[in-house]
Design a protein around this nucleic acid. Structure first.
Length: 313
DNA sequence: AAGCTCTCCTGATGGC
DNA sequence: TGCCATCAGGAGAGCT
């Protein structure tokens, strides 16, 4: 479940332990881990060999390591369960070790990509003019990027016909936000996940972005969020933010603001956690006034219309 | 054509 | 004890 703070923790570890090293040998142990490298595992390994690792970069949940001045970078995405570990020489292989990158530098150990669910992976890509691997040119700046444009984000939200949590998870609008921090920021902003983005006022967008930044910075300060061993920094250590979560994973537990039991709703093949009192259901679409034929919604006063009685798909 | 759904994957967990 | 279903979810392919 690595999101921006977790990926940034990993980026800092790579900057400390991998930048400046030279690749002695790369070994792909599972082809799926390099599936985004279209030329295949052998090409991936051959092109890494002998290259010098540059400054570790990140945008949203993607990170990349420029290879010397070749204009090519190793792009990494951790997916659900990916780990980039720096392991001392002689460390036994992890069960889900997918890629091994050995350095020429004596005692530097290995950079390893370990990934149980294989949603993540590494690949090589040329950089665009602004230094981004070309395949992530569509990824928006993230909210911790000094060049993130709050006004443009708000304008995009107003243009879209979608709901606020979908928008937060849309990496082409704002990157780095995943299911956990989306729920946390929405709880802090007292916004329901299904609120149409077109109804957001500029002050609301500003407040929401502020909460996104606050919660991410708070997580970053303690090394990220972790629920199990699936997310670790390059030294295999977990972060401590899980204990600070206010919404995610707190079904039936009291809201930390009002004491109302928190709820979980199936949403987009995953879960949304929210307080039914602090985060009120958005009022029915404004078009409702134009369709008097709509059957009397029995649950008009229901705090969550549309979920329980709606058809299962 | 923007918006949404589906699919990829493995391991933990729960019900019977 | 075993077996099957469910859940976790980022992101892009592929629908409509």
């Amino acid at each position: 479940m690595p999101e921006l703070p977790e990926v940034e923790v990993v980026r800092r570890g790579l900057e400390r332990w991998a930048a400046g090293r030279t690749v002695a040998e790369a070994e792909v142990l599972h082809p799926r881990a390099v599936r985004r490298h279209l030329a295949g595992p052998d090409d991936f390994a051959a092109r890494l060999k002998g290259r010098r690792i540059g400054t570790a970069m990140r945008r949203g949940k993607y990170l990349w390591l420029p290879l010397g001045d070749a204009g090519v970078s190793v792009l990494a995405h951790l997916g659900m369960s990916g780990q980039l570990l720096i392991q001392p020489p002689g460390t036994p292989d992890e069960k889900h070790l997918r890629i091994r990158i050995a350095f020429t530098d004596p005692g530097a150990g290995e950079l390893r990509f370990v990934d149980q669910r294989t949603f993540g992976g590494l690949s090589l890509h040329p950089e665009t003019a602004d230094g981004l691997p070309d395949v992530i040119a569509h990824i928006a700046r993230d909210p911790l990027d000094p060049d993130f444009d709050d006004a443009a984000f708000h304008a995009a939200l107003r243009r879209r016909r979608t709901t606020v949590k979908r928008a937060l998870l849309d990496q082409s609008l704002i990157s780095g936000v995943g299911n956990i921090y989306a729920d946390e920021a929405l709880w802090r902003a007292r916004l329901h996940y299904d609120r149409p983005t077109a109804t957001l006022t500029r002050p609301l967008t500003t407040e929401l972005l502020g909460h996104v930044r606050d919660v991410m910075n708070a997580a970053l300060a303690v090394g990220g969020t972790s629920f199990d061993s699936l997310y670790v920094n390059v030294n295999g250590e977990s972060g401590y933010f899980a204990r600070s979560l206010d919404a995610y994973g707190r079904e039936d537990e009291p809201c930390r603001r009002c004491g109302t039991p928190m709820r979980r709703r199936a949403w987009m093949n995953r879960s949304s956690y929210f307080c039914p009192r602090c985060q009120r259901t958005p009022r029915p679409r404004t078009t409702r006034a134009l369709s008097p034929a709509s059957p009397a919604t029995p649950g008009a006063a229901d705090p969550e219309p549309g979920s329980p009685e709606a058809p299962a798909h």
